[in-house]
Design a protein around this nucleic acid. Structure first.
Lengths: 254, 254
DNA sequence: CGTTAGTTTGACGCGATTCAACCTTCGTGG
DNA sequence: CCACGAAGGTTGAATCGCGTCAAACTAACG
């Protein structure tokens, strides 16, 4: 299916990170147990808190368990680019064994609960849990996909498609961990933050959002985004969901 | 050094891919020998040839040995976004074990010689050659870095910085494999292609290039780019080379 | 019920695009 | 050795998408 929109039932007893990797469909019970236990070193942050600052020595990667975070960079011109957002189940800092220092800032967008994974623990996974290790590799590959698609948006799509594409992408990323509601999702981003992701001014972002609402491609109500006509929204911004395809395992070792 | 501009001596007897991973500074002799031998399944393409088309079933990853290639996407609006370029030593398609189909087009920008690495070979590397495997993981992490930095350019920098930043980045990527000459490099990209990377029109790209030449931040002569004042160029676009830092190994197993 | 963060709207200006034309370089063949 | 064509580079003029400045409006919260 070219749209990559397969859905699988979600078991809410698992952590978001386990759900994102396909839970029992992909991981063995032993690996699920290990991965859940690996999330025991936790921390919480309030909205707006810095989790990691540019150039910090990284002591661990982090798995977002609850809430949203953003990775961002400020330019001397005063503009800020939000490079990516992290929703529950997603992982920041898997590069820790290669790049020991943070290259950007990581800041909580909402209340955040996260789990810390040390560099040795990551190596343990690669040594001992091949499917989980594949999950981490898949996660890295997916980061490349997401950033590639964002590049296309920033470089080649106009404001309305850029915003619509982003909202659809977030919707599907949330769906992968069962965090959507009906035909939409709870939206914690302010218009300023949306603008900083899409490389637009807040004023233009606002006008474009209103135009999307008028065109009935999205609906906004009290921090919720819904898609009244999902297919029309997908078509309007040429959304091709292949880049968000879930982890599938072709071979089980042994 | 925050600029990430360390250089190491280059041994031209190695393939570009081995040079990029630090050759003997990082890899054991056994791993170098294996990695060179792994590049025996070769293919050549003329400039403009498609190497991989969108949605193709991927049979192997590819290591660029000579020449440049580009990964790109066309939108319905007729614009084309070049998501990344690949120079010698760089690898396309390491995600093959997770995403079996190409999500974009890969096209030769110049004459290209490449080596094909099958999915099983990649798994072999992970099973048998830990440092080489780390090199592949580093390579993936670096892709994320490069794409992140490109996102910042496309979203938050104006045309002159966007172009200058890209030229400096390419210069440093070429330097990592010893493909630079003096204070610049041979530039095979047309202005249209530059424009498609930077998300600009060809007309504006041309005007901006002329302005950069006038400002003595770059010099152009017969398909060569040079930097008359490298530090000034770095400063002008706030270039921070940390994202291109070469592979360093902290621990050797065993 | 006041304060603050976030949203919305108008007016204006600029950076970048578009359309169009011309120029330069280089490879090819007579 | 020159003629020619094709591809790429350069420049001008008009236009537009988006940014900036400024102000008013709304909702959430103590």
């Amino acid at each position: 299916m070219r749209d990559g929109l397969e859905t699988t039932p979600i078991d809410p007893s698992h952590s978001a990170a386990v759900r994102r990797l396909g839970a029992g469909r992909v991981l063995s019970n032993e690996e699920i147990a290990f991965f859940e236990a690996a999330q025991n070193d936790r921390a919480e942050y309030a909205a707006g808190d810095d989790i990691v600052r540019d150039d910090d020595l990284l002591r661990h990667a982090v798995i977002i368990r609850k809430g949203w975070a953003m990775r961002w960079h400020a330019t001397a011109g005063g503009t800020r680019q939000i490079i990516n957002v992290y929703v529950p189940g997603e992982i920041y800092g898997l590069h820790i064994n290669f790049y020991r220092h943070a290259m950007h800032n990581l800041t909580a967008l909402t209340e955040v609960e996260l789990a810390r994974i040390g560099p040795e623990q990551i190596l343990d996974i690669y040594r001992t849990y091949p499917i989980l290790a594949a999950g981490l590799d898949w996660s890295s590959a997916r980061s490349v996909n997401v950033l590639s698609e964002r590049n296309i948006s920033l470089g080649a799509r106009r404001a309305s498609s850029r915003i619509l594409h982003l909202l659809l992408e977030i919707y599907l990323r949330l769906m992968a961990v069962g965090e959507t509601e009906a035909d939409g999702f709870a939206m914690p981003l302010t218009q300023q933050q949306l603008a900083d992701i899409c490389g637009l001014s807040i004023v233009h972002t606002n006008r474009t959002l209103r135009a999307l609402v008028r065109a009935k491609l999205i609906a906004l109500s009290r921090a919720r985004v819904t898609f009244p006509d999902f297919d029309a929204a997908m078509a309007a911004c040429e959304f091709d969901g292949r880049f968000l395809a879930p982890l599938k395992l072709r071979m089980r070792p042994g």
